[in-house]
Amino acid sequence: DVAEQLTPGLLDGLEEESLQLVSKLKDSSSSCAVDVSTMWWEAAGSRELCVVTASESSVSLWKPLASDRWGRVYTWQLGEVPVIQIVSLPDTCNLVCIALGDLEIGEMRWLLLYSSESDSFGQSLVKAGNIKAVLGLKDRRLVSSSRTGQEQQVEVVSLSETGRSKDGQTLMPPEETVLAFAEVEGMREALVGTTAVNSIVVWSVNVKTGQLLKKMHVGYSYPASVCHRAYSDSGLLFVVLSHPHAKESESCGNPAFRVIAFNPKTARSTGVMFSSLPPGHAGRQRCDGSAYDLRYLEGDVKDASAAAVLTSGAIAVWDLLLGRCTALLPPDPEGSWALARWATTSACLLAGQRDGTVYVYRY
């Protein structure tokens, strides 16, 4: 219901320069696209980066063919509970997790896998419960936060090669609900999370302990912060956050993405760089003539690149180190963009539309 008019502005020409359309995946059977991701797929001795698409009731695996085309390898049909999220496992082959739930919050995690020994595709339950957040970690592990009444459980589960839950380790939970996780890059035992009251929590995750090392406040002026990425450098912990309430015209006060440097020893922090919504989109109108603010809907971060779907139906891409928007995909004449995800390797953006069509862009 949005009449989209992109006003000529600062971003003219950037989309052609920075994003090149490589190919298109069209799932004719898909009812409504929910999520898209990438995963490593190994069969007959060859390892390829494949695309995973999810609708509410099924998950499909696509492998690259010649001439930038994609072929559907397999479709898992799921039960009555809708799919709400694909949870990919970094550095893991032939395994992908799916979050299912009736509301926006997942209730169960199922594991979809392929066994080369039996040449069969399967699925099994990893965890059930009122799960608030989940992230796939390196070394075939999953971390999740869940609530039972007033009790919060934060747990890391290791998976076997056959996809079964092997070991579980409980991390010390903070009082407030953890809504997102990020691995600290290069530190296998360090994990961070963002909470419902805008805190950053740091854990030590090893075979012996799940200690909560530090809780640091992000600041109330940046509500609903979601951590996407964390790394340690020169004694500081750098965290990339998105702010889902970000909107246009609040460029300094409410950016879409921020890089914050924390000193974990003192819990003090300072903003390093912020990335605001792209300019030149003022005066937006719905078909009924009412005005609306351009807002951030959902996004993804890979290395120093961020991408987000905006309420205008466009996808914006930022260089987080420069703090500026570097590309803009306007809404397609056939429909608005609904999903923006980075591939796990290479500078590749997956842009999804609600009808299940996924466009692969080289960035």
Partner: peptide, 23 residues
């Protein structure tokens, strides 16, 4: 970032916090 803004910085913050935290 200066040390005066953020307080004393340690390159071994993770190990030091792990040793200080309750088990």
């Amino acid at each position: 970032c200066s040390e005066s803004d953020l307080g004393p910085i340690s390159l071994n913050w993770f190990e030091e916090l792990s040793a200080e935290a309750p088990p």
